[in-house]
Design a protein around this nucleic acid. Structure first.
Lengths: 228, 228
DNA sequence: TCTATATTACTGACGCGTCAGTTATTTGTA
DNA sequence: TACAAATAACTGACGCGTCAGTAATATAGA
């Protein structure tokens, strides 16, 4: 794997700035695969190209490392998400266009390497870390739903979407995306999507959802333009 | 909790027939709370009102116990589900009625004490137990989706539902229900459903989904009859 | 040379799995 | 019916491996 160490190269390099991030990434990967209890600090260290002791220079213990992994990952994703959304806010497009673009972004987020492990971890440890659970519920789920329902509400007002409770519609969208994301992460197990690409699945999600929130007449019109 | 033992009552009773089931139930509860690795056999034993050694009279080791917990729970639920569906098959009702009734049953299943823990466990251990993952994917998810798409297909044919790929529609239904089931299990964390009852959530699910699969004209008509 | 950074070797707690021993129940015998 | 012997069911303390956390040692880099 690695080239044989020339005697010149140091066995390791001092990189105190980069260590926390490296450790957090490695930890997310290992925690995500094995779960908190079954993950060994030594495996995390190996994955980060370090020794176990080094982890303890940056994190007080396994539990705090776990907390930081969740917080760090979630916050990183959140900022990334917010950046994306604010980019889009500049162009004053229709609610449908905004929503479509949002769904595309949302799907890439859901299908990113971080989402599935974090989701699993949070749901697995929700009993043991109520503080993280609350943090996740408030800062991620609720915040995300608020973002979506904002778009929906605008569409309802403009008549692009039917009279529907935006909060409900937001939950439905989220449920679709999260669940399909999880299934796609384990394609090999779930035959119904085994042969479909991420793009195909997204397409199905968008079509289904848009039909579900559009008023009857809009769907009528849409039907005319699309050939089955 | 327990009444003080009268000197007559034995410290324990021989119940070889009932033991496996008791152990499996206790194990599901503990595994579901703590996860596989963090669960101690002694806690499971205590919960079942037994000592640790007794577990080893019925199961070879922790891992096999886990396998059996998943298989047993899943199969039990599956049989229950099938019983319910076959009951309903006798009455020749409309696809909409069948679907509505199915959704009600499905929701009670999803909201049962067993569903959330099993879901968490399978998703947490999917990497470590590929055999269970395949079993779950084939025998539960795929089978369930086939059941649903059968109902949908009938509705499409009869014109009750719009022209939609029944397999896709089945997945969407499932995604809605599973995800909302998980959220409802942790109401305290998810503010958007914190104040809603299970019945309200089901109602929202049904209304949203039915709109999404009905043809435009049916939704038009429906709109007339329902006051918002 | 000095010290912050990293490694390696170690310790102790914890929990799985075992098994010698205990208790409930059944069966045989009077 | 009564009680002893046999058996099946169950218990809980202990051995042994594993791993989080720590102490002692090494090395990069100023």
């Amino acid at each position: 794997m690695a080239s044989p160490l020339s005697s010149q190269e140091p066995r390791w390099r001092r990189l105190p700035e980069e260590r926390p991030g490296q450790i957090l990434n490695a930890a997310l990967a290992v925690f995500g695969e094995r779960g908190l209890a079954a993950s060994r600090l030594e495996d995390i260290a190996k994955r980060a190209g370090l020794s176990k002791g080094t982890i303890y220079l940056y994190f007080p213990n396994k539990e705090e490392l776990f907390r930081e992994v969740v917080r760090h990952t979630v916050i990183t994703q959140l900022e990334e998400g917010e950046r994306i959304v604010s980019e889009n806010a500049t162009s004053a497009t229709s609610a449908t266009e905004t929503l479509t673009e949002f769904m595309q972004r949302y799907w890439t987020f859901i299908r990113s390497a971080q989402f599935a492990p974090i989701f699993r971890l949070i749901h697995a440890e929700i009993h043991n870390f109520p503080d993280l659970a609350r943090f996740y519920g408030e800062e991620v789920v609720a915040r995300g739903h608020r973002l979506i329902s904002g778009i929906i509400a605008r569409g309802v007002e403009s008549g692009e979407f039917r009279q529907i409770d935006p909060a409900v519609a937001a939950r439905m969208l989220s449920a679709h995306f999260v669940m399909h994301g999880l299934w796609c992460t384990h394609r090999e197990c779930f035959t119904s999507i085994a042969k479909k690409s991420d793009e195909q699945v997204l397409d199905e999600l968008m079509q289904f959802y848009l039909y579900a929130i559009r008023p009857c007449d809009a769907n009528q019109r849409e039907r005319g333009t699309v050939t089955l």
